[in-house]
């Protein structure tokens, strides 16, 4: 990475209270987001992707305990901000797009009003007309036709894909530096997905906003992201450029994930799944969390006893595998 990071997570660790105990949901999550890039975060359900995004803006459930070495953003540490200061970052400088556009909008408020509101929260002196002008510009940017009239409609009058565009417009209206998009296409039809991704890319191109795209869909990643953070069991296992990751991943989990994509197989061949299931967060193995499912020929006693850290390999690739320097494609 060349440009200075706009957002940098260092050692983000999150505990969630379940019953009487705290369970560690995120362990030492560390990565940077460069200005204007689209960075993907992939992993299975429960790997901590969404929690990572929520941690950045501290939209966590009340029973969560966040400890972070630092969540650096524009010289400040988001983890240490007071609520009032945090509010000035939320929606103003870091926007958020959630998974399900059907439930993200307030059902009893006109769509345009909700976007206006996002603008007016951060521009208290702006009039209605000014806010509406901004909203309409954003709706047009993300490809909502007839924005002027549609803004006066209620969310139930909008389709899922259109609503997600509205949510993206809402996240963009204050011209933020970063957008956190948490599975923005998962709840949508496959045909609509491409259009929503397109809207995000256009936002990046025209507004220069960095996009953190959280998804479990490697196909989406390969289409739009320039870099990928692979997460497993609450930790980062690999960070790589998208092309490098797909060509030559340095972690057996990433390799297995890429290999299990339907597109990786010839027609008629059975699909390959990663055997086993992710470990329970309350009962993580002492060594590498992926060791029980790992099919790497290099797997050794060390994998079971010693947890590998996220470190650069000899050629400068970040991987949390003891055998990061060995070629991984042999697993397949």
């Amino acid at each position: 990475m060349t440009a200075a990071p706009v957002l940098s997570l260092e050692g983000v660790t999150l505990d969630l209270k379940t019953g009487d105990d705290y369970v560690r949901i995120l362990r030492d999550v560390t990565f940077d987001v460069a200005a204007g890039e689209i960075i993907g975060i992939v992993g299975e359900s429960g790997s901590g992707k969404s929690m990572t995004a929520l941690s950045i803006l501290q939209l966590l459930p009340p029973k969560a305990r966040l400890t972070a070495a630092r969540i650096g953003f524009d010289g400040a540490d988001l983890a240490g901000l007071r609520p009032a200061e945090l509010r000035k970052v939320r929606g103003r400088r870091i926007g958020m797009v959630f998974q399900d556009p059907m439930t993200t909008l307030d059902p009893v408020v006109q769509v345009g009003r909700q976007i206006d509101e996002a603008y007016r929260i951060h521009h208290p002196r702006a009039g209605r007309a000014e806010a509406r002008e901004k909203s309409l510009a954003m709706l047009r940017l993300v490809g909502v036709p007839d924005a002027q009239n549609r803004a006066k409609q209620y969310p139930h009058q909008w389709s899922g894909g259109m609503r997600q565009r509205a949510v993206i417009a809402m996240a963009l209206v204050n011209d933020p530096e970063v957008i956190l998009a948490d599975e923005p296409t998962t709840a949508l039809d496959a045909t609509i997905q491409a259009q929503v991704l397109d809207a995000l890319m256009r936002a990046r191109d025209e507004l220069g906003v960095a996009v953190v795209l959280i998804t479990h869909d490697l196909g989406v990643i390969s289409q739009v992201a320039s870099r990928v953070v692979v997460m497993y069991a609450g930790g980062v296992v690999e960070i790589a450029g998208t092309r490098e990751l797909f060509a030559d991943s340095r972690h057996p989990y990433s390799a297995a994930l890429i290999h299990s994509r339907p597109g990786a197989h010839r027609r008629g061949e059975p699909l390959v799944a990663i055997p086993g299931r992710p470990p329970l967060m309350s009962d993580l193995p002492a060594g590498c969390p992926f060791a029980p499912r790992c099919a790497s020929p290099y797997k050794s006693e060390r994998c079971v006893t010693q947890r590998p850290a996220l470190e650069p390999s000899v050629d400068g690739r970040l991987s949390a595998c003891h055998y990061r320097d060995e070629p991984q494609e042999v697993i397949a």
Partner: peptide, 17 residues
């Protein structure tokens, strides 16, 4: 407890709003 409330907080809204 609804998602849209979290989304409103993500917009930068205070508790009153």
């Amino acid at each position: 407890g609804q998602d849209y409330i979290r989304a409103i907080v993500a917009k930068g809204a205070g508790p009153f709003r």
